Simulated scan of single mutants.
Amino acid sequence: MPYAEIDSETKLYYEDKGEGQTVIFVHGVMMSSKFFHKQVPYFSEKYRTITLDLRGHGQSTKVEHGHTVSRYARDLKRFIEELNVKDVILVGWSMGAFVLWDYVNQFGSENIKALTIVDQSPSDYIWPGWEYGAFDFEAIKGVMQVIQEDQNGFNSEFIYGMFKQKPDPKEHEWILAEMNNLPASIESAIVFNQTAVDYRESVSNVDVPTLICFGTVGFFPIEAGEYIQQRIPGSKLVAFDNSSHLLFLEETDKFNRELDAFFSSL
């Protein structure tokens, strides 16, 4: 299995298929590269399609430290350097979008051709004057406790919120297995950090073509996507009316077509 060495303790698992323009898919918190299993066959016919597991997630090293969005962004930078790819298109879903924004904040967009943001508000926290988050203090406090006391139960229930339609048992089963592969200690650390980060002001640092895809039923209102679109010049927002958070699984054909059209237009 292919791994990229990030440091002496950390190796990131990845899959690399196809040839041409490089596209890297970055998953969300508690998830893994496996979530893009309906994208890889489609995009690898035309593009070099890379999926990776962030540190601690999926099949990557279960290293206990470094579980912050900013560290994940540095890992992504190191990963891109390790594979020696140029002018990449980055697709960030959920927390993966945070990783992309943090990457741009730290390193700029010199080696980035375009971004795709998938269903992520600029901040998960409901700050004063910011209603487009997912958690207030009481909610995140409760999440931290239940992850430590009943990780399986929390993860299992969390899955239903990611779908507009109730997933079939087999789909729920594999998703839960992927989520449970993340140690509870790591899960609670990164869930808290990604809830506390705030890119409302710095999202406007993005200066490359950007596609924004939002489900209209679920974690974030479409207004969060509109906020992003208004602050990234020339960006495009696409709504997925039959999806919650997992729009690339619920509306796969539309998702793949929209991204393909965007990539082809660059």
Rank of each mutant, 00 (worst) to 15 (best):
A177W: 02
V104A: 04
F219M: 15
T51Y: 08
V85I: 12
S121G: 01
E178T: 15
P183T: 13
S235N: 02
T252K: 01
L100Q: 07
I50Y: 11
I50R: 11
V23P: 12
F135K: 10
T216Y: 03
S70P: 13
S243Y: 01
E201L: 06
I89Q: 01
E201D: 10
D168M: 05
E15P: 00
E201F: 01
K34R: 13
G92Q: 06
I222W: 03
L76P: 04
V88T: 09
A189G: 02
E81H: 08
T22H: 02
W130K: 02
E157Y: 15
G20V: 08
R74Y: 09
S8Y: 15
F240E: 08
T49F: 10
Y227M: 11
E251V: 04
G20M: 08
V85T: 15
R78I: 11
E110W: 05
M162W: 15
V238M: 10
D207P: 05
N111Y: 02
P167D: 09
Y160C: 03
L266S: 07
R200N: 02
P221F: 08
K38M: 09
Q21M: 13
Y132G: 04
A114S: 14
M162C: 06
E15T: 06
K141H: 11
D53L: 12
Y160S: 06
R71D: 12
V99H: 05
G20S: 13
K141W: 03
G20C: 06
L182Y: 00
L83H: 10
I6R: 03
D241K: 03
T49A: 07
I6V: 09
A97N: 06
I147T: 02
W93M: 14
Y132P: 01
N84P: 02
G66F: 04
V104M: 08
G225R: 06
S60V: 01
I212C: 09
G133N: 07
F255M: 00
Y14L: 05
E223R: 06
T10M: 12
D102I: 00
E258R: 01
N111D: 07
K170Y: 15
V85K: 07
K46A: 11
D7Y: 09
P183D: 13
V143W: 04
M95S: 12
K141L: 08
Y42I: 14
P233W: 06
E81L: 05
D87G: 05
L12T: 00
E81A: 07
L12F: 12
E131S: 13
Q194E: 15
